[in-house]
């Protein structure tokens, strides 16, 4: 990997870690508040369906995960499984999987 790409990957992982820290806190607080009156699908959908704010929030959350997690897994695959090019391919594929599953879920609770 070129010096430039290596630096970009490092920066992308750090920046998305910051975003994730904020997103996880909001998500956890929402969960704690949401379960106070019992947890039902209806209650969740009532909050999220048609809400542009929650759509944007969870979209940012998914994008941050899609960038952050595969970079970390790539490092693990390189160091512990000794994968070289295979780690890059596997990380990209895993990122695409997260992207599809993540946005499927986000759209599912919005529409």
């Amino acid at each position: 990997m070129s010096p430039q790409h290596s630096a970009y990957l490092w920066l992308a992982q750090r920046v998305t870690a910051l975003v994730l820290a904020a997103c996880v806190i909001v998500h956890l607080i929402t969960m704690i508040i949401a379960v106070q009156g019992g947890l039902t699908a209806g209650e969740i959908l009532a909050r999220t369906q048609g809400s542009i704010a929650w759509l944007l929030f969870y979209s940012v959350f998914v994008v941050a995960i899609v960038v952050h997690a595969p970079i970390g897994l790539r490092n693990i695959a390189r160091e512990h499984l000794r994968w070289a090019k295979g780690a890059d391919i596997a990380a990209v594929l895993f990122g695409l999987l997260l992207l599809v599953l993540g946005f499927r879920a986000v759209w599912g609770v919005f529409s």
């Binding site: 990997m1 070129s2 010096p3 290596s6 630096a7």
Partner: peptide, 13 residues
């Protein structure tokens, strides 16, 4: 030097 210390075997590892 910055080029030499970057990459998968460099400082970011």
């Amino acid at each position: 030097r910055l080029r030499a210390v970057s990459g998968d075997a460099g400082c970011h590892a």
